[in-house]
């Protein structure tokens, strides 16, 4: 299992860099990991709005929400979502939020 070191702590991740032990997630983890998802500078309030929304939804339903739902509930559009998370909501945002890897379809 690959490991990464962020802010002095070791985390186990999968091949795509998704956190394996979900209970190890912390705000420090997200902050320190942001640069790997092409986010320049620190996470802003807008980033946290998305991350917290994803975490709440995941805790409630056990899956990541559909992207349209994120946009609708947070009142942001896709363009904004990709501006905040340049590697995309499924990859970037879910990874920083410490969600398990969304099961994609080819």
């Amino acid at each position: 299992m690959p490991q990464i070191e962020l802010a002095g702590k070791i985390y186990e991740v999968d091949e795509d860099g998704f956190l394996q032990e979900l209970d190890k997630w912390s705000e420090e983890f997200a902050n320190a990991y942001a640069h790997a998802e092409e986010i320049e500078g620190d996470l802003t309030e807008e980033h946290w709005k998305v991350i917290n929304y994803l975490r709440n939804y995941f805790q409630q339903f056990g899956i990541a929400p559909m992207i349209r739902k994120i946009c609708k509930d947070l009142k942001i559009d896709m363009k904004k979502l990709y501006e905040l998370f340049p590697t995309g909501p499924a990859k970037g945002a879910c990874k920083l939020a410490g969600l398990s890897k969304p099961t994609g379809c080819v």
Partner: peptide, 12 residues
């Protein structure tokens, strides 16, 4: 293995 999430900048 089933699936993987990788990509390029700006594209999902």
């Amino acid at each position: 293995k089933h699936g993987g999430i990788v990509g390029v900048k700006g594209y999902g």
